[in-house]
Write a protein that binds this DNA or RNA. Structure first.
Lengths: 372, 372
DNA sequence: TCGACCAATGTCAACGTTTGCGGTCATAGG
DNA sequence: CCTATGACCGCAAACGTTGACATTGGTCGA
């Protein structure tokens, strides 16, 4: 409030209430965005010359330095901005990457979007967001991001198997597509993912080495990576201990609240586990909270292992032992692929899954089990 | 890996290595996306008729049902998708909202982006992301999001005062702009924000009622809202206690790590505070962790108050007392404004700040001070 | 039997760029 | 004095849509 007139109010503040005074404040500027023709008129050249000068095209015939000068100054004076739609019409890339995510509310995917945006910007691209949550939106996401192919390529985040319409639309679209975190059921597109199985096994190895034998799993909706993680857990435990005890796999929503509910259920079991593996750090946070509020001390009474290594994982109470998701690598590879496909249409759609390795980050939420 | 051939591989998998076999696999489809002319040819009508039928334009002159039928079936058969660039060139809105955020890595803004995307999609718009972090990107964000006005309107998130070039570009752009969370120095655009002062005062009232007198403030970089919050804190404390003790205002980076550092510094003070107000929940999380690892029990030994009420705030250990940021309201109003301005060019740029009220959420991280 | 009028469709010029191809000068060489 | 030859630049056609306007082929009333 104190700074109402922060930056150059004289410059900008003029416009506002009265919309009739189009050119009064700005002099002779035609108020709508200037085109190349306007520049051509001012500079006294043809519009194509303007195009050539402004794009600095390597024309076989040179353009006089003086003409060049006249055009550029005219352009600057008029405040020319090229019209990307017109360029796009001529086949120029839009420099836009579409990102379709199943649920942007999921903190993990929100983080992934961040990383994706950063990676895209680094390559000169920007991100168009679409999310596909819910029956109704299903159409929207594509109508806007795909069908509306402003985008040079599309990146899919997360498992979208339950959105048949979206997948169908993807199938006969011409924009190149790459998938990230497709988990156990990747689409027929180039895909990058984390090695869920290796991650879960590394985590379980860690717990087993500490001496744990009663290990439970808290899972979000078994889709995509989550399903892979759960499968890896089951496989390992069966391999090692013969069977997964009843109730040792909890299915909840992938939120802290879900983690809380799951842990309460686990603690109520006749034989409560001494360690809990969560399919996601978000769940682990909830589990930590539930343990705390039940008086169960982590890691003394209970070990908790997460997956993802979200930003907060190193700052929970206690700090969370987890599996670091190589978001950066995955996203970078995804963007690289997407751009490569966008540039070279001949290579599009060569399915295949590239996996990146997660790594175990040992912090304070795991310890040997207490001797009952 | 197991699911390599997940969905309809016969349909899609065909394309790939050999790019000469354009039409071989797809029959007679021209392989590039079909235009209205293609449909017109197939249906045996003129291209404008196709346009009229497909857009179901309320033309004063009717079109024969049979013709209509022929056109629609042809369109469906060819898999027609309208070209938004061509439409845009004719002046149609792109249904894209640009979002420029100072630092998408900030968890709060990441969350805001989510909410913004949801709100935009609800209105039929999609989001184009641009971030403006760092000197170099500064140009990029605008080159891509603004200059490239694919967007019908632009939403600014957070204080961007330190990006002069961006602001300058905004000044003479023709796209309508609205600002969110501009804090103490809003730009000359319609702006929506939270009432930081009221929030801080409510939080301090709460602490004072509990009996606290030694209250410290942990602040991120004093920009935008953060600056307002800090100012409100100082004002309140001076008003109430005459002065802010030395060292009672800590400046750190807005991360959990920053919160940790700040709390360590505060605990090292000769007269440590009994309560800490953080400018952000992210900082509060760090503070909780630092307290825990120092053996300082929250809330018995120290009260911690956050700001924002992020998703995790109710699941920290202990659950965080904080001020709920009305993200939904702010974002909804912002999107509403943006779309309104996009639709009605005559109303653009009527500066002014609308503030939404935060509310105090009391959880377990605050309590009366221990009697030393 | 002829113009009027209506239904049903086609024509054509935009929108702002890019780009292949051709045109117009001046000047130098003959 | 005439014609090549560069050096510079303009013309105009695309790109895929839209929409104002023109154009058909009939049917109807006079």
């Amino acid at each position: 409030m104190e700074a109402e007139g922060g930056a150059g109010e004289g410059e900008v503040g003029g416009s506002g209430a009265d919309e009739t005074a189009k050119n009064a404040t700005t002099g002779d500027r035609p108020r709508s965005v200037p085109t190349m023709r306007d520049i051509a008129l001012v500079a006294g050249v043809s519009q194509s010359t303007v195009s050539r000068v402004l794009n600095d095209v390597p024309t076989r015939v040179p353009i006089a330095a003086e003409t060049r000068e006249r055009v550029t100054t005219a352009a600057r004076k008029l405040g020319y901005r090229p019209n990307p739609l017109a360029r796009g019409l001529r086949g120029a890339p839009t420099m836009l990457l579409g990102a379709v995510v199943r649920d942007i509310t999921d903190p993990f995917f929100a983080g992934a979007i961040e990383a994706l945006s950063v990676a895209a910007v680094n390559q000169g691209y920007n991100l168009v967001l679409g999310h596909a949550r819910g029956r109704a939106d299903e159409a929207q996401a594509l109508t806007a991001v795909l069908e509306t192919r402003h985008c040079d390529a599309i990146v899919l985040l997360g498992d979208l198997q339950d959105q048949p319409r979206l997948i169908a639309d993807l199938a006969d679209s011409l924009v190149p597509i790459v998938g990230l975190w497709q988990g156990s059921s990747p689409l027929e597109v180039p895909t990058v993912d984390v090695d869920n199985k290796a991650g879960i096994r590394a985590g379980l190895d860690h717990l087993v080495e500490l001496g744990h034998e009663r290990i439970a799993f808290v899972s979000g909706r078994p889709l995509g990576d989550i399903r892979e993680r759960q499968a890896a857990f089951t496989e390992y435990v069966v391999e090692r201990f013969g069977t997964v005890p009843d109730g040792y796999i909890q299915h909840v929503s992938n939120t802290p609240g879900g983690g809380e509910a799951a842990l309460r259920a686990l603690l109520a079991l006749p034989q409560a586990p001494t360690a809990v593996v969560t399919s996601t750090d978000t769940l682990a946070v909830g589990a930590l909270h539930a343990a705390y509020s039940r008086g169960v001390v982590v890691p003394t009474d209970l070990s908790v292992l997460g997956f993802d290594d979200i930003l907060l994982a190193s700052h929970t109470v206690p700090a969370l032992t987890t599996l670091r998701m190589p978001i950066g690598e995955i996203v970078a590879e995804g963007v690289r692929l997407a751009i490569e496909l966008a540039r070279d249409p001949s290579a599009r759609r060569r399915p295949g899954v590239r996996v990146m390795a997660p790594s175990l980050i040992v912090r304070q939420s795991t310890a040997p089990p207490s001797t009952n």
